[in-house]
Amino acid sequence: MAVKKNAPIVPNFGDDEESGRKLAIICSKGNLDMAYPGLILANAALGEGVETHLFFTFWGFDMIAKKRMNDLKFSPTGNTAMHMPIGDIRVPQALAPVPGMQAVATKMLKKQIADLGVPEVPDFLEQIVGAGGHLWACRMSADMNKYTEADLRDDVEGIISASDFIELTAGAQLLFI
């Protein structure tokens, strides 16, 4: 690379290039643990100046439903990778469905996430919108739940069909979670 003599080394933040990079994330899960991957990636993409759209569908709809978004749960049931917080001890699957286990596991996960300074789901979505992210709700999920826009976060930009979303995200990289 030809460097002008005495030109200072300055990072290239890509401000002059119109990258046109776009990311579409389909959030289809409503478990507490599966809500986070999409949010973390959306937040990271926005921090890199990437236009980002999130589409909430099926169980992922709970993340934007006013009555449900504060109450996502985590269950070790069916999750063979669930370890105790200390050491590498797995939670035996026979114990996973025991009453109270889900509440304990949810509380534990929330604490671990909070300890890292990562916000709860509703706060995180607010941060994403603040950073310029776009939230969209799935038409079919709204119909199945008998929900209207009034039941959803105010910053959801609209209830749209699958084809609307595909049209909206033309040329985007897509993640299904």
Binding site: F13, D15, G47, G117, P119, A131, G132
Partner: peptide
């Protein structure tokens, strides 16, 4: 996130002051 939670400046404002990244 930390600039918001510990520094008290919302992410949105950070994007306005230092655009894109």
């Amino acid at each position: 996130r930390r600039v918001q939670s510990a520094g008290g400046v919302p992410t949105k404002r950070q994007f306005e002051l230092f655009p894109k990244k």
